[in-house]
Design a protein around this nucleic acid. Structure first.
Lengths: 191, 191
DNA sequence: ACAATTCTTGACTAATCGTTCCAGAAAGAG
DNA sequence: CTCTTTCTGGAACGATTAGTCAAGAATTGT
């Protein structure tokens, strides 16, 4: 029988995801990908198809891996408000170094307007995040922390929107005070 | 003496801005620009320098032309809340057709992370919009519409953030109800 | 050992990228 | 008209793009 693969598919995909995350879709060349993924050019094409297919798979992987961190944070027992604050201030911390934002956010901005598959995946991500916020809000309401919450669905959508806005804003500014103001007012909706 | 220019610099720049607005920076080729601007390739280079310089000038023009519309809307006498509602729902209307978002928003996402000049221009845009929100809030407070407003600077930053988030979100979704929920909760901060 | 299958390598398309060069047409001022 | 400058068109630049091909090395089951 045949030889086995000498690289881990998931590891290579992870690397590809990071390159797309940092450089975007158009600015990433196959040469960039070959170098960073550490696999052969031909293996890349054999395993992932063309550049666009690889990008879509990278979006899927991001959805699985990165979104999970967010879900876990919001589902962990304890104060919902504190979890939300941690989530939002985490964006501010993250803006210090890498400055690559969020892959889904970037995809929405760069490609969703002209690529249906990308638009679909970003919508799926949006739905998942909205749902995570929604469940957290319901939990907060049930546990008495957010008694006065009127329309959890609308607030969940609002939180998603503010979160994405913050990720984007943090890409251009280093003004922590400004970003903290945004978080402060955003979370005041829950009071 | 010499011949005069046969094209209007501002008109050509306007066209270039629209191309960058629709396609982004990387996905726009000089060929695209030549075709849409309606001027000669050589004239393009003579007049605007290279692609990157042209892009930065397009950002400047956007800042002047498009931001003014926003300023005028917010400075017009009348209810500040109504003006803000009009501004935000305008984003929802705009998402029906073109789907190109906002050039500054796009620039922030695509280039601000790796181009200092772009980051600077988007920061300038952010400061201008924040200031427009701030002045509108102060006016609302003075005129009694927003008596209970505590921290207008923070709320202005919050409004800017929600606005940019909405522009981005509207790029991927057509769910008007979801977008209207965002606007509803965002503006509820002023109540 | 042997055959089957797959990985690796590097050269190789054809197209497009941003940019420059050049020759000639057009239009102002003297 | 002539001189000067600028605009125009097309060809060309070298570099890079996404993607392919073919041949050999490696690893498996029999």
């Amino acid at each position: 029988m045949a030889r086995h693969k000498e690289f881990e598919r998931d590891e290579a995909l992870q690397k590809a995801m990071e390159v797309f995350w940092t450089r975007g879709y158009e600015a990433t060349s196959m040469q960039n990908l070959v170098e960073h993924m550490g696999i052969n050019r031909q293996s890349l094409y054999d395993t992932f198809g063309d550049k666009h297919s690889l990008y879509l798979e990278a979006l899927d992987r991001y959805q699985e891996v990165e979104s999970r961190r967010l879900f876990e944070l919001l589902e962990k027992p304890g104060s919902v408000k504190k979890a939300l604050r941690k989530l939002f201030t985490g964006v501010i911390e993250g803006c210090e170094g890498e400055r690559r934002g969020c892959l889904m956010n970037n995809a929405m901005s760069e490609l969703a307007g002209r690529c249906k598959a990308t638009a679909e995946k970003t919508r799926h991500n949006m739905a998942a995040l909205e749902e995570a916020f929604y469940r957290a809000l319901l939990r907060g309401k049930k546990e008495g922390e957010l008694k006065e919450l009127r329309d959890p669905r609308a607030v969940a959508r609002f939180l998603y929107n503010s979160f994405q806005g913050l990720v984007l804003t943090a890409k251009a500014t280093q003004d922590r005070k400004a970003l903290e103001d945004v978080v402060k007012v955003t979370l005041s909706v829950l009071d």
